[in-house]
Design a protein around this nucleic acid. Sequence first.
DNA 1: AATTTGCGCAAGCAAATGCTTGCGCAAATA
DNA 2: TATTTGCGCAAGCATTTGCTTGCGCAAATT
Lengths: 121, 121
Amino acid sequence: MEIRRDVFQAIADPTRREIIDLVAHKSLNLNSIAENFDVSRQAISLHIKILTECGLLVIRQQGRERYCEAQFKKLHEVSEWVEKYRVLWNKRLDKMDGLLNELQAGNKKRNKKQHGLNKNR
Amino acid sequence: MEIRRDVFQAIADPTRREIIDLVAHKSLNLNSIAENFDVSRQAISLHIKILTECGLLVIRQQGRERYCEAQFKKLHEVSEWVEKYRVLWNKRLDKMDGLLNELQAGNKKRNKKQHGLNKNR
DNA sequence: AATTTGCGCAAGCAAATGCTTGCGCAAATA
DNA sequence: TATTTGCGCAAGCATTTGCTTGCGCAAATT
């Protein structure tokens, strides 16, 4: 068991993202989750299976009910991948700001050239 | 044109994530990108199409070559979704730390009860 | 003990995904 | 001008995905 699933693949589906949103703050059993969607219980059950297989959810069996608890640790993988670009993307914004400022400065008047300002972003 | 694609869906595929990694620092034309993979050029072309359709890539046509440039702004959507859980997931770690400490304290000796310490994380 | 409730298993199916190969065009090179 | 190069378009195909419905079991309720 425990088929290594890809987290990125798991959160690709909007329904699965909603499921995570739902159980983020308090555990819910499968049927309570399914109530929030207009697909069959079975469909939701499958989504939950996928989410547990990749470690984003953990099931606590309690009698005949299965409570789903979010497991955020696994989101770290996604976070890492995205955040490594944050530096670059801030840099790009800076550059754009710079260009905009140059343009504005140029339009308003051709004197008082401001250059390389606006590094705060 | 411009079929609104889901960013989450786009980055679900490992090849597409690799493509983004490749062009993160410098633009590359399609064939240079395709060289890095052992699938056909056409397959890569399709991946790139998907990436541009959701705004993660921008194409600059230059003669007969098409240079792919990463567009990190769109990653913000992913970042936002993931990061909103960071608080929760840190909180959970705190709780676990707390439990661990209680256990340790309990094991070592049954006196000197430390409770609710270790809030620093 | 009989019924209801929660949920997994499995089959079946349409649509989407990822890939390939072959064709053709327009820009660059010879 | 003839050939090469970069790349899109389109058809075809195997998997995968997401969903449904029906069955059945075990825990809870009556």
